[in-house]
Every structure is written in structure tokens, then in C-alpha cells.
Simulated assay, not measured.
Amino acid sequence: MPIIICTVIASDEPIADAMKRVKAIFFNVVVDTAIESLTDKFETLGEVRHGFGVLLNFQRLDDQALSNQCDNLCMTLRTGNESDIDGKELAVEVKNLPNLPSDNITALEGLTFIHKKHLEDLYPNLWVALRIVCTLPVMWQSQQRGASQS
């Protein structure tokens, strides 16, 4: 049956059979919705990567760029006058990190590294920022499900 639907959709001829027409229209709506959803997801993840990028590429940044990006992350995590992290302290923490297992470490790998080495108290701002970035995709999915159910 899917082969017939695809053939009908690919064709520019009018669809005479009402059931085939409904299937074709339904299929187009489903595909359009899936494409729109994926586009939104990639845009959102791009914004997250931009805001939290310092946590992924800090090893390649000079001191000024690191300081600026840590301050930007601090502003991203600010609500009113409160922030989850201190940008200046985060920059110092990142500069003083011990050698990491690799140059291209993911946020989850960084979080795991800090946890396994029991460094949470030495790097509290990095610990908080990594926990936030590791839960963002889950939080975003939960918000999307909640919005679609209302």
C-alpha cells in the first residue's frame, strides 16, 4: 500500500479515487509536520550549542574569548538578578581543569569526568553548567510534548 501512496503523491495527475486522495493528503500533512518539527528541533539545538558552546570548545579558546563566552553563558542562565553560575569563576575553573581524556570531549563526558574524579566541589560552576546542558534536550522534548497535548 505505501508504494501506491508514494506513486500517487509523486504523480501530478488528479486523484480520482477519494480514498487515495485522503491518503495522499494525510501523507503530505504528516511529512510536512515531521519536516517542520525537525527544522524547529535543529534550530533550537543550534541555539543551545551557541549559548553553551564554551563548554564544548573551551580548550581551543584564548583567555579573552573564554572569559567573554563564560560571561555570555552566565547571562544566558540569568533570571532577574540571579544566575546559576558565575561567568568569571567559570572561566577560572575551566582554565585550571586537569588534563581531560580527549580534546573533543562532549558535555556528558565532561560531566562524567568531573563526577568520577570527585571534582564537583573544585569546579562548582562548571559542574552546574554541564548538568544544565546535559538535561536541555530532555527538558526541550518534555516541553514539546506538553505543548502538543494542550
Rank of each mutant, 00 (worst) to 15 (best):
P2Q: 15
I4S: 15
I4R: 15
I5Y: 07
C6W: 05
C6Y: 13
V8L: 15
I9N: 11
A10F: 11
A10L: 13
I15A: 06
I15E: 10
D17G: 00
A18W: 00
M19H: 02
M19T: 04
K20W: 01
R21E: 09
R21M: 05
R21Y: 04
V22L: 10
V22M: 07
V22I: 06
K23Q: 12
A24D: 01
A24Q: 06
I25Q: 15
N28H: 09
N28I: 01
N28D: 05
V30K: 12
V31E: 08
T33E: 15
A34L: 13
S37Q: 13
S37D: 12
L38C: 15
T39S: 13
K41T: 14
K41A: 12
F42H: 14
F42V: 14
E43T: 02
G46D: 04
E47H: 00
E47T: 00
V48F: 01
R49Q: 08
H50G: 01
G53V: 01
G53L: 01
G53C: 09
V54F: 04
L55C: 11
L55V: 00
L56Q: 11
L56D: 12
N57T: 14
F58V: 10
Q59E: 09
Q59W: 06
L61V: 09
L61Q: 10
D62R: 07
D63C: 02
D63L: 03
Q64R: 13
S67D: 14
S67W: 03
S67E: 15
Q69E: 15
C70T: 06
C70F: 03
D71S: 08
N72D: 14
L73N: 03
M75I: 07
T76R: 12
T76E: 11
L77Y: 07
T79W: 05
G80F: 02
G80S: 07
G80Y: 00
G80Q: 06
E82K: 09
E82L: 03
S83G: 03
D86I: 13
G87Q: 14
E89D: 05
A91I: 13
A91M: 15
A91E: 10
V92P: 02
V92T: 10
E93M: 08
V94N: 00
K95F: 08
N96W: 08
N96D: 13
N96F: 08
N99L: 07
N99V: 09
N99W: 02
L100R: 10
L100D: 12
S102V: 12
S102G: 00
D103T: 02
D103I: 04
N104V: 09
T106A: 08
T106S: 11
A107F: 00
A107M: 00
L108H: 07
L108A: 01
E109N: 04
G110C: 10
H115G: 04
H115I: 09
H115L: 05
H118C: 05
L119W: 07
L119I: 04
D121P: 01
L122G: 03
L122T: 11
Y123V: 07
Y123D: 03
Y123W: 02
N125Y: 00
N125F: 01
N125K: 06
N125P: 04
N125M: 01
L126G: 06
V128F: 05
V128W: 00
A129D: 08
A129P: 15
I132A: 02
V133T: 10
C134R: 12
V138P: 00
M139Y: 03
M139T: 09
M139R: 07
M139D: 14
Q141P: 01
Q143L: 10
Q144C: 11
R145H: 08
R145W: 10
R145A: 06
A147N: 12
S148M: 11
S150T: 11
S150K: 13
